[in-house]
Amino acid sequence: MTTFLTPQQRADRTSAAVEAAVAAGRERGLTVTEPTVLHDVFSVVVHLAPSPVVARIPTVLPRPDDHLAALARRQQDELDVTQWLADQKIPVIAPSPLVPREPVRRDGFSMTFWPFVEEARDKEPDYVANAESVADLHAALCAYPGRLEFLSAADPRFIADSLALLDQHPDLIGAAELDRARREWQFLEPLVRSRSAFEARFPGVDLQPIHGDSPPANIFNAVDGDLYADFELVTLGPVEWDLAALGPEHEAAYNRGARRNGTRPLDEEVLAFVNALGMVRVIATLTLVPQLPELMEYLKPAVDHWRTTPFAAGMST
């Protein structure tokens, strides 16, 4: 049976992350006397008060034993991309100017530092408007000069490893569902692993820097205006990846934004691909439930829906 993290172990992990962030902040000259945890899900996000700096420390990781080097590379990509966007006057949460722009490793964690931005808590997110706004973000990201890996946000190693491990967790997924997920991954994997295979399968579909992690859900409602945020999975890929699993209303909103700024609309076949890939990644994410038990309540509805959908989201073979 699956062994889940206990509440005490979860609290100890959070405390260790906060202590590491406080020590790292003080080492970099920040005054920290009242650290306050703002969020604690996949990452611990702590305001290093009274300094106007927030540390984000990923704590729920696919490969806890060998994650730090790979995590730091992704974090550096995020820092570089968001700083570049800020330099282009794009509304984004950029790295804190009070510390060097680089990931910091301490006590088994790798963390990044961001400005503390006051949230407009009385404002409800408008995800449809956000989806339209993502077309503007993509238009800006087109010009990003840095190098990014192809579809690293999908993390094909994580998917392959997780689908292999799920045999050991029959309480998380049934045998029939796991068999289907593995067959879908066998069909999709070549298009994720190889840029040339993707381009051969989808000729004429351009690749560009994209947010990587559902940007309509990662626009921060700041007091002074909305800001693009949380580029932890920034990657090179088709723009459709950023609209995966959001549905027709959000897709139509994105297309309105694309028409407005002169960029291409979403491609239906690529949407089917990213939707299928996103669902296989949901199945793979079940392996993180032992580290974050409450994750199951969010994944279960998606898995239930997936059972009712065509194989590989109806992609033609």
Rank of each mutant, 00 (worst) to 15 (best):
F113T: 06
F202W: 03
P209Y: 05
T6E: 15
N218Y: 04
D40Q: 14
W306N: 00
V44T: 15
E189T: 03
R106H: 12
N130G: 12
A16T: 08
P50A: 10
P301A: 00
L266K: 02
D226V: 11
G225N: 14
S43F: 10
V134S: 05
R28C: 05
W185F: 05
Y127E: 09
P58C: 13
G174I: 00
T112L: 09
A258H: 02
G174D: 02
A135K: 03
T33S: 15
A129W: 04
D171S: 00
P248V: 03
T287D: 07
Q291E: 13
G212H: 03
V117I: 15
N275P: 01
R180F: 01
V270I: 01
L227M: 15
A197S: 07
D155C: 06
F150I: 05
R193H: 05
R183M: 08
I93Y: 14
V234W: 04
V32S: 04
H250S: 08
A229F: 15
R105T: 04
D87S: 13
A94C: 13
M1E: 07
D242G: 00
L246G: 00
L163G: 05
A120D: 15
R182W: 00
F198G: 02
Q291G: 10
A23L: 13
H39R: 15
A16Q: 09
S152P: 03
R101I: 12
L299Q: 01
F198E: 06
H305P: 00
W241Y: 11
A23C: 09
P100D: 02
R256E: 06
V270M: 01
R56H: 14
I283N: 04
D77T: 11
R201S: 09
R180N: 03
Q186L: 06
W185T: 04
P7G: 10
S194D: 08
T263H: 01
Q186S: 14
Q208N: 02
A197N: 05
P50R: 13
L68F: 12
S162Y: 01
L71F: 06
P125M: 11
L286M: 06
V92K: 09
I210M: 07
A244R: 12
F109I: 01
T3H: 09
E199M: 11
G278E: 05
R147I: 11
D226Y: 14
L295C: 07
S96R: 13
F273D: 02
F42Y: 13
E27L: 04
A69K: 07
P170N: 01
E27A: 09
P248A: 04
V192S: 00
K89Y: 12
S96Q: 10
W241M: 10
P62A: 06
W114N: 04
